[in-house]
Simulated assay, not measured.
Amino acid sequence: MTTPQQAHCARTALVLFSGGQDSTACLAWALDRFAHVETLGFDYGQRHRIELSCRQTVRAELAAQFPQWAAKLGEDHVLDLSLLGQISDTALTAERAIEMAANGLPNTFVPGRNLLFLSFAATLAYRRGASVLVGGMCETDYSGYPDCRDNTLKALQVALSLGLDTPMTLETPLMFLTKAQTWQLTEQMGGAALNELIIEHTHTCYLGERKQRHDWGWGCGHCPACALRATGWQQYRSTP
């Protein structure tokens, strides 16, 4: 008889993988739990699209440094969602200063981004025989984005499962973790080697800056994404 744990490990997962710290943590988390894991990236005209070129390096390094995960790592997919960039007016899709908007959200918020990402991911997962979507959304350390909230994603999981007429599970392992706890999680899964991989090869900076290397990785050092990553690293390093 198959146990629930065995059934869980036999499933196929599709990870929304941008090439950043959070999605790399989610990819490692999925590789640690599922029999087969594929990755999906999106090209939506993002200002920091250098992350797209980091994705393949991260995948290759994970496979090379963690042979127990290499056999589980399947195909990578990239979808062209340039239309999202065309209809957005944000600091992530245009050369604009990053600031707070009148609605109280930072102008890095791309309306509907995660809703679209997960809808397209579910469509691809259905075709690829995957029943689990894994994303790095988090409502603990985030910028107030409403499509990162747990309630939003629970509702979307129901809608996707009903719309596809097949169970589709949305896993968000970082949902209630701080950035410091995310560093701790990756250390638990892959030790210092995984955290060093994240520092050296992932990309988070909203401005696409990869000329300055800090203790926590590459970036401008002052955009909201860099500030959050740096603060999390400092808190992680100061934890006994």
Score class of each variant (00 low, 15 high):
C9W: 09
A10Q: 15
T12A: 14
F17L: 09
G20K: 01
D22Q: 03
L27P: 05
A28G: 07
D32E: 13
D32P: 06
D32F: 06
H36M: 09
T39Y: 01
T57V: 12
V58H: 03
E61F: 00
L62I: 12
Q65R: 15
A70K: 12
L73Q: 12
L73I: 12
H77E: 10
S82E: 11
G85H: 09
S88L: 04
T90N: 05
L92F: 07
A94N: 14
R96D: 05
I98H: 02
L105F: 06
T108Y: 03
R113S: 08
N114P: 05
L115Q: 02
S119Y: 03
F120Y: 15
A121N: 00
A122T: 07
G129F: 05
G136L: 02
T140G: 00
D141Q: 01
Y145K: 02
P146V: 08
D150M: 12
D150Y: 12
L162Q: 15
P167K: 01
T169F: 10
L170A: 08
T172A: 11
P173W: 04
T178C: 02
T186S: 09
A193G: 02
L197W: 07
T204M: 05
G217H: 05
W218M: 10
G221P: 05
H222V: 13
P224Q: 00
P224T: 04
L228D: 13
G232I: 02
